[in-house]
Design a protein around this nucleic acid. Structure first.
Length: 224
DNA sequence: TCATTAAATTGTT
DNA sequence: AACAATTTAATGA
């Protein structure tokens, strides 16, 4: 198990904690390594941790009764998730599955609650995160109801480069087109076509198992 | 380091 | 959904 020191140093919300606070958080944090396909959390289980992605990627997905599955979002390096169920004290609403080899940091509920009670910067961070997520959801509703599938793919990809949620995302997304399909709620074939359309529009580059973003604002506003 | 092979992913119908 | 083409990763000479 790796020391969580570097992990927390990299976390934006940890920047403004006092050294005492940081020390406690470090002591309580557990780092886990997940192989591709490994579970960070399971739908229905009690929410025991707040989870951060140190490296790699975790997809938050749900399955339907008919065996179909869809991905709600992918949490990439530097992203944190799972606070919703912690705050409401309810079972997890989705599975968290590693898409590739991934390291995650788990902060126990008690430590999370303690930060919430003692740190204004931490509260500010969470408020910002909720606000960004809400913005993403509004954008998704808009695109599903008003825009075509190219625009939906463009926006799904763009959400993974949100600078507040994923501060060091860079411009590459390592994800197969099949996984992007789960994320957009479309077939792999449709995603393939849409990605090439977006490539011709010079908004991104399609590579093997990788998307490189060229024009992020262009992706966000595609179809408007 | 290079060649071979299997597996994963992509492009197309 | 099926198929062929392409890319990657693993293996061993």
């Amino acid at each position: 198990m790796a020391a969580p020191d570097d992990t927390l140093r990299a976390a934006v919300w940890a920047d403004e904690l006092s050294s005492d606070q940081l020390q406690r958080v470090r002591a309580d944090t557990v780092v886990r390594h997940l192989r591709a396909g490994g579970y960070a959390c399971c739908q229905g289980e009690p929410a025991a941790n707040w989870i951060g992605v140190i490296s790699g990627m975790v997809k938050l997905s749900v399955g339907s009764a008919m065996g179909k599955a869809t991905t709600l979002t992918e949490v990439t390096t530097g992203g944190w998730f799972g606070e919703g169920s912690l705050l409401k004290d309810e079972p997890r609403k989705y599975d968290g599955i590693a898409v590739c080899d991934t390291r995650i940091a788990c902060i126990p509920r008690s430590t999370f609650m303690w930060l919430l009670d003692t740190s204004f910067p931490f509260n500010r961070f969470l408020l910002n995160q909720f606000n960004e997520r809400l913005g993403i959801m509004i954008s998704m509703l808009e695109s599903t109801r008003l825009l075509n599938s190219e625009a939906r793919v463009a926006r799904c990809v763009a959400t993974l480069f949100n600078p507040l949620l994923y501060p060091n995302a860079g411009d590459c997304l390592d994800l197969s087109q099949e996984e992007i399909g789960y994320l957009c709620g479309m077939s792999r074939q449709r995603v393939n076509r849409a990605l090439h359309t977006l490539e011709q529009a010079r908004l991104l580059r399609v590579e093997h198992r990788r998307i490189t973003v060229i024009d992020l604002p262009g992706l966000q506003n595609y179809g408007l």
